Simulated assay, not measured.
Amino acid sequence: MSQPESPSTAGTDAAGSLDQQGQQEMIQRIGRTLVQALPPGWEQARVQYRAVGSHRELEAELIAPNGTRIPLSPPGEVGELFANLRHGMYQRHRGTWLSATYQISRPSSYSVDFDGDHEPAWERQPPHTEYATELERYPRAGHNVPDWLAERAGMQPPESATTADQLRKAEVFDGTDAVGRPVTNRPELPPEEKNRVLEYLERAPVVLAARGYDSDRLSPSASSSVPMTFHTDGSWIWPGAVGYYLRTHDLTPQAELVDHIRARDFQLPHVDDGARELAVTAITEEQRT
């Protein structure tokens, strides 16, 4: 049975404060606490603890001799003990584990597996802010941060462009008709996605901006209100007009950009100075041609 754990900070001691003896004592205490809660006649039990940042999950089950798995509600103290163990096992530059599997068999044998490299099989997907919290609370050297954790924490993703010509450039419209009016043929975004796409588009760093505003090509009589800016997320470049027309006229950005934003789960990555400079180079080179 899986149950959420409270997001309280584990213990008051400094991260990494448990030595080998302290870790073993904590592991054995988890086992004793678990055994006291098991029903008569138990043979095997397994507990899985998953955590990132302040997000914590605890799942327990009995394993019958025929392999049948029976959900179990473990005492709340088990979750607190796991949280303290994870906190105490932090290693400088290496971080701490993200999931632990504790298996115990009658009468007293047990095994514990810790995993700090692979993403846990979450019961509930943690908010992306928790991945950044994880790296703030338990810092790792860059080479010890798995790609999936770096991406979810908003660090520069590995698929970002490395040269200016690798950056993809979004168009505001699909083209123009014979008299110069903009042409688009794009389905509207689902209502639940519109604000998430807008937030991604408008929060991305502005790498170039001109003074003033451009006219609204879908409302020629309106005052000039279209931002003359360019944004990037390290993989794509788009004019500020893309967000404007989505917000004002429900004009969906081009499909490839929307698919890219969805693939990132609507989470904007960190865009470093090098990625911003590449974007400026790509924009200025395009404007010269």
Rank of each mutant, 00 (worst) to 15 (best):
T9W: 07
T12C: 06
D13Q: 14
S17D: 01
L18I: 04
Q20A: 15
G22Y: 05
M26G: 05
G31L: 04
T33V: 14
L38P: 07
P39V: 00
Q44M: 04
A45K: 09
A45W: 01
Q48M: 11
Y49A: 12
R56P: 00
E61Y: 08
R69E: 13
I70S: 09
P74L: 07
A83L: 03
N84S: 08
R86D: 04
G88Y: 03
Y90Q: 05
R92N: 10
H93I: 08
S99T: 14
S108V: 01
S111F: 07
F114V: 13
E119F: 06
E119L: 04
P127N: 11
P127T: 12
Y131R: 11
R140P: 10
R140N: 12
A141V: 01
L149W: 08
M155G: 13
P158N: 09
A164K: 13
A164C: 04
Q166K: 14
R168F: 02
K169P: 00
E171H: 11
V172H: 01
G175S: 08
G180P: 00
R181E: 10
R181H: 05
T184E: 07
P187T: 11
E188N: 12
K194R: 15
R196C: 04
Y200T: 13
V206L: 03
V206N: 07
G212P: 02
D216L: 05
R217G: 02
L218N: 10
P220W: 02
P220D: 00
S224M: 04
M228Y: 10
I237F: 02
R247S: 15
L257R: 13
V258H: 11
R262L: 11
R264Y: 06
A275E: 13
R276Y: 05
E277N: 14
A279E: 08
E285K: 10
E286N: 14
T289M: 12
